[in-house]
Design a protein around this nucleic acid. Structure first.
Lengths: 198, 198
DNA sequence: GCGCTATCTTGTCGCTGTCAAGATTGTATT
DNA sequence: AATACAATCTTGACAGCGACAAGATAGCGC
């Protein structure tokens, strides 16, 4: 096991460049956005040459694919975090999952936009497809437990959570976006509950 | 008035290059998507040199800003078209506006993504900001006429329409997206009506 | 010690957006 | 009608980009 000293300035072999590139890529995504995302800038941030990422990811889209796959898992984790703090009844769990969906969008907007608003990740990639499916299927499943029976019910809860998340993430909902978090959560929960059939 | 012959092959002065560039830009957007959008490719399609667009739009983002402004107006027109064909009661008009919102997203996905999923247009531009505001304010106003009173009501109808539109536009809602249009409209209308307070 | 392979660097290519300078055309003025 | 001026478009250049090829370096099994 090599284990180079942390202060080792610039060893020819990085050690865990793949992970470092992923972290640098997310930081770049947060600072410059997906539009100005640059593979060379990621490499520079990680302290390696401009061609180093190619060996680990092939091309820039595959780096973004890996980033999106990891992003979807954290996205699902954000929903689980809300559920853990919510009442155990099915309707509350459904609302909590929706609030987690929105939490992620507001807290990590650049990553959310990579997941839902970009075509650069390769969504035919098996890992990404599965991580993506699992992330919204979890939410959709909740409404079944809460009394939803039709495809309209399933679609409704997903569309409501996604619409709120996307518009808040983009900063276009000044009305709700400027509310204090507790009050905002109450309004969002009110809206999410409308997905349930009457 | 100049009025050059239509078959005039390549006059030094185009005549209405600004409009031609807008059309070429939308065509490029539809064929290659926002990620691969290229100013030089737009110029080539319009039959002019690579630097010609700069004189009319300054830079590429201002071309996209102009395109988005026009896009928002057509987006609003898609809602009006549905309303004109719907029953005159307030709830039906609200649903119709939502269906028009979704129509536009499914029929012109590249443009919809420019309007709602890109940061390249300059949304501080006065014309664009006004066109954008008008496009969703119209939908939000409908729920007031249909009995909505709270900020939750207004937010709900917008979020539902937008969530459905965004996910259908991205091709991620295979369940509803694969239905035949009449059946699909029925399900979408069912969901849109859930925005109304009970 | 030796060879093999993975890892990383350097250099190059075509493409991109933007800027500067020059060519062409339309229009107003005299 | 001739001239000056402004608008329009082209050509050429530059740096930054993603991708590829070739070479340098390092770890690892033998």
């Amino acid at each position: 096991m090599s284990n180079p000293a942390p202060d080792d300035k610039s060893p020819y072999h990085h050690g865990d460049l793949r992970q470092a590139l992923m972290a640098a890529a997310e930081a770049e995504l947060g600072e410059r956005g997906i539009e100005a995302f640059s593979l060379r800038s990621v490499a520079k941030r990680a302290g390696v040459s401009h061609a180093a990422p190619a060996h680990h990811f092939g091309d820039v889209n595959r780096l973004l694919t890996a980033l999106a796959t990891e992003g979807f898992r954290q996205f699902l984790a954000a929903q689980s975090a809300r559920e853990a703090a919510a009442a155990p009844d099915a309707a509350s769990q459904m609302v909590a999952a929706g609030l987690g969906y929105i939490d992620f969008a507001m807290q990590r907007p650049a990553l959310f936009r990579l997941l839902w608003g970009s075509r650069r990740p390769d969504f035919t990639d098996a890992d990404l497809a599965e991580a993506s499916r699992a992330s919204y299927q979890h939410l959709v499943d909740q409404i079944g437990a809460a009394g939803g029976r039709t495809i309209a019910d399933e679609t409704a809860v997903w569309a409501i959570a996604h619409g709120l998340a996307d518009l808040l993430c983009a900063g276009r909902m000044s009305g709700i976006g400027s509310l204090a978090p507790p009050e905002r959560d109450r309004v969002l929960a009110d809206i999410l509950r409308r997905a349930l059939p009457r």
